[in-house]
């Protein structure tokens, strides 16, 4: 147990430590970084990305991948904006958010059924449905705006209750979405580490054939992973739409699926599955957002952030490979020593 806890947490501590170092560097070198306003914004953006990564962490820990979350964000944004403006815009915000979660979950369910029942590969399935969902979003937006061609103008929303989802809470500088994200991350951590569903997710991510032979319902666990991934993408979409006070069908082009995967990888969730939990996704999202935000405070070309993100993803993966090798070596040594002692 000791070894497990330590290796599991070392990875988190390393990322979290790097985040702290980055924040220190940015606060010392840029005047406009360390203040309530900017921190509120940073954690707003991190929460949005974090919600997507949180959902993805279930698919990825289960050894899968979901490239459709960007598409889900896009189509759900349009759907929730329509829903939120129904009946003279009197729909409560909570209900709208719930609607978005259900929509996202339904899209995730489609992915899950295609992967586990029709037996298509995850990569191709979610690549295709991602494009499909974005397309649906664009079509719906076009119908809303009629004559448009090419440019999709965001449709404004006038529903106070719904828009309050995208605002700060009380007098603090912290957005509602940040609180929701932290609370849900904690809840999902419990689900992942303490429930049978979580245990089975690790099992299929680590060795799905063995898991199946042990009586784990691999198809159900996989499908549920996609549903969770979609549901969180849907929630993220609602929160973002409320924050922007408008739904934009161009959200599908923003590459959220890759940013989400990047956040997971940087946080320490292995692409091959079987490793990591929602806390890793959380740290990863803060890490990436800190860099994006911090770099803006310097007067350098904004495109540099892409280059730096790429480098960080490679570095994180390289670190994990090396880290894995070192811990494996230590374990071997320990087990040999143990055997000799016996």
């Amino acid at each position: 147990m000791k070894l497990r806890i330590s290796t599991r947490n070392v990875r988190k501590l390393v990322s979290a430590g790097l985040v702290v170092v980055l924040m220190l560097v940015f606060s010392l070198s840029a005047d406009s970084f360390w203040n309530w306003r900017n921190m509120g914004n940073l954690f707003h953006d991190a929460a949005f990305l974090g919600l997507i990564a949180l959902g993805l962490s279930f698919v990825m820990t289960g050894g899968g991948i979901d490239l459709s979350v960007g598409g889900i964000v896009c189509v759900t944004a349009i759907l929730v904006s329509r829903f939120g403006t129904l009946g003279g815009s009197s729909v409560p915000g909570v209900l709208a958010a719930l609607f978005a979660v259900l929509c996202g979950g339904a899209f995730g369910l489609i992915n899950g059924v295609l992967v586990t029942r029709v037996r298509l590969t995850e990569f191709v399935t979610t690549l295709a449905t991602g494009i499909l969902y974005s397309g649906l979003g664009l079509l719906l937006a076009y119908r809303d705006n009629g004559k448009l061609s090419g440019v999709i103008v965001p449709k404004g929303i006038q529903n106070e209750s719904f828009l309050s989802l995208g605002e700060k809470v009380g007098g603090t500088g912290v957005f509602l979405v940040t609180y929701i994200w932290i609370a849900l991350s904690a809840a999902m951590y419990f689900v992942m580490r303490r429930t049978n569903f979580g245990l089975h997710t690790y099992a299929i991510g680590s060795h799905s054939r063995s898991a199946g032979m042990s009586g784990v319902n691999v198809r159900r666990i996989k499908t549920l992973g996609f549903v969770i991934s979609g549901a969180f993408a849907g929630l993220a979409s609602a929160m973002l739409t409320a924050n922007m006070t408008a739904a934009s069908a161009s959200l599908g082009n923003n590459g959220y699926e890759f940013q989400g995967i990047a956040a997971c990888v940087v946080g320490g969730i292995a692409l091959g599955g079987g490793k990591g939990d929602p806390v890793n996704a959380m740290i990863g999202a803060i890490f990436l957002q800190t860099i994006l935000n911090g770099l803006l405070k310097f007067n350098i070309q904004a495109y540099w952030s892409y280059v730096i993100q790429g480098v960080i993803i490679i570095a994180a993966t390289a670190f994990d490979t090396l880290f894995g090798r070192v811990t494996h070596m230590l374990r071997e040594r320990r087990s040999i020593a143990g055997r000799e002692a016996v």
Partner: peptide, 20 residues
């Protein structure tokens, strides 16, 4: 063998029939 490497001994033994 039909074990799952990422899980503990106890988790493997009860995999698919966990108490709780």
């Amino acid at each position: 063998l039909s074990l799952v490497p990422a899980l503990t001994v106890a988790e493997n033994i009860f995999l698919g029939q966990e108490p709780g």
